[in-house]
Nucleic acid binder design. Structure first.
Length: 128
DNA sequence: CACATGACTGACT
DNA sequence: AAGTCAGCCATGT
């Protein structure tokens, strides 16, 4: 199972010898668990990992997610309003939306349509 | 060391 | 309803 994020502030639990970070690995694991056609948010992932207030760190991890193997469906992570705030980090500005629409997720004005129904909560679906 | 900058969020104005 | 602030914390300058 996933390890919980270390919440003791600047504790060094987040940096390991190989430059790999537990938080990073855990975030990748959660993102890989998002089913096709569903989306979740940075905050929901942070909450699931036990760091409600560290959603920015989740976003930071996503910034490096493009090089991990196996690849993670980074396009399924949006902000709390369903907005595609990470779109500019994909190969092209339209790539994120294209990947979502490929799995039948409609996007209008950079926002996921029917976001409430598309939302996938890791806390609920993976178990707290 | 100080300061700025984020793929963020919730509270407050 | 839209803007601002305050937490957040790794990285870069």
């Amino acid at each position: 199972m996933l390890r919980r994020m270390n919440m003791t502030g600047t504790d060094h639990d987040t940096s390991l010898p190989g430059g790999r970070r537990d938080l990073f690995a855990d975030v990748m694991a959660v993102v890989r668990a998002i089913p096709r056609g569903r989306v979740t948010t940075y905050g929901a992932i942070a909450k699931y990992l036990g760091a409600v207030r560290s959603s920015r760190m989740v976003g930071y991890c996503m910034n490096s997610s493009h090089r991990v193997r196996p690849a993670v469906p980074a396009h399924r992570v949006v902000n709390r309003n369903g907005m595609l705030t990470g779109k500019h980090h994909f190969a092209t500005p339209t790539r994120m939306q294209e990947l979502l629409e490929r799995e039948r997720v409609k996007v209008q004005d950079d926002v996921v349509v029917d976001f409430a129904e598309r939302f996938w909560d890791p806390g609920v679906h993976l178990g707290i």
